[in-house]
């Protein structure tokens, strides 16, 4: 096996980033003739393996037992480590999800194999691959190479590859097993829960007015609320605004908040850190206002204004009300 993809269970469905990993593996496998194995594990492995077998991969590996039926970092790390040792792939692909960040570094430590994280692209350089990652909040990119013969652990940033490009096909399913003892599990996990559930659903909003650190202070929040009202949109924010307690958690857009794709996303004083961008880059039109002309938000904006949001917001509200 050349590439092993580890798929994540997202409420009994294939995590979208798992399909993106399949698309990534397929994109480099064509001219190399790589074989692709996909590992599904945990309590929903049965149903997930059937879903994954509908894609153009070499085979699906299905793994479940009492200890890994639900997620624990120790259980998953040990299980995937053993599968890697059994199958000896050249590359192991993951989506760069929160779960992957939690347990895959442990596999890196167990095997002393490098984990090249959060890549946005793969490029071929002779026989080896160059993996590109963002640094400094996406202000710079770096081409990374492994100095190891593998297996190499590789994760991809959300939307680095499109799930729509995952080619369908028909793959065989193989049951596999690992040898795990409950004494290896050092954690006890309660059920996942949501706070302030049922608050706001920003996913249906046509226009989102989203504020970031550039709003400056809590006293400026009403002017943003006023603008959202004037334009007929919903108010949202990046993480620092919620961390500061200026807006409640359900307003947050990004990897730890909601993912939205409105007709217009008005990003006000938002620098464009990747944790925020993954939650809004699917918006049809992105309009960004920021004091810093170098802010990464301008990389993805359709319309950009270099300016002070605190000055522009009240004038914009006024102009919209006059219309």
């Amino acid at each position: 096996m050349d590439i092993l993809i580890v798929i994540e269970d997202n409420n009994s469905k294939i995590h979208r980033m798992g399909l993106e990993s399949i698309a990534a593996a397929q994109s480099i496998s064509k001219d190399k003739g790589f074989s692709i194995g996909v590992l599904v594990m945990g309590g929903n492995a049965e149903g997930l393996s059937t879903e994954v077998s509908k894609y153009d991969v070499s085979e699906v590996l299905k793994l479940n037992n009492d200890i890994i039926s639900s997620y624990s970092s120790d259980g998953y790390a040990e299980a995937v480590k053993q599968v890697i040792e059994q199958e000896n792939p050249k590359y192991v692909f993951f989506g760069h999800t929160y779960q992957v960040r939690d347990y895959v570094p442990k596999i890196s430590a167990k095997l002393m194999k490098p984990f090249l994280v959060d890549n946005v692209s793969i490029n071929k350089d002779g026989e080896k691959f160059i993996f590109t990652k963002q640094m400094f909040n996406a202000k710079l990119y770096s081409d990374m190479v492994a100095k190891d013969n593998g297996p190499l652990l590789i994760s991809f940033q959300s939307a680095a590859f499109s799930a729509d490009n995952a080619q369908s096909g028909s793959a065989s399913i193989r049951d596999i097993s690992v040898d795990i003892d409950s004494s290896m599990i050092k954690t006890e996990s309660d059920e996942p829960f949501q706070e302030e559930a049922g608050g706001m659903d920003l996913t249906a909003a046509e226009v989102i007015v989203s504020i970031g650190r550039g709003i400056g202070k809590e006293e400026n929040i009403p002017m943003a609320q006023d603008l959202a009202k004037a334009i007929g949109g919903e108010l949202a924010s990046s993480r620092p605004v919620v961390d500061s307690g200026w807006l409640s958690a359900p307003h947050q857009i990004g990897s730890s908040g909601q993912s939205v794709s409105p007709k217009m996303y008005l990003a006000l004083g938002i620098s464009g850190a990747i944790q925020h961008v993954v939650g809004m880059k699917g918006s049809k039109n992105i309009v960004a206002i920021n004091k810093d002309p170098e802010a990464p938000i301008f990389e993805i904006a359709d319309y950009g204004v270099v300016g002070d949001v605190v000055e522009i917001i009240p004038k914009l509200s006024e102009a919209l009300k006059e219309n």
């Binding site: 490098p114 963002q134 996406a138 202000k139 710079l140 770096s142 190479v145 100095k147 190891d148």
Partner: peptide, 10 residues
């Protein structure tokens, strides 16, 4: 076991 080949502005 991993290194930066090149740093650049995207």
């Amino acid at each position: 076991k991993q290194s930066m080949e090149k740093v650049y502005i995207p």
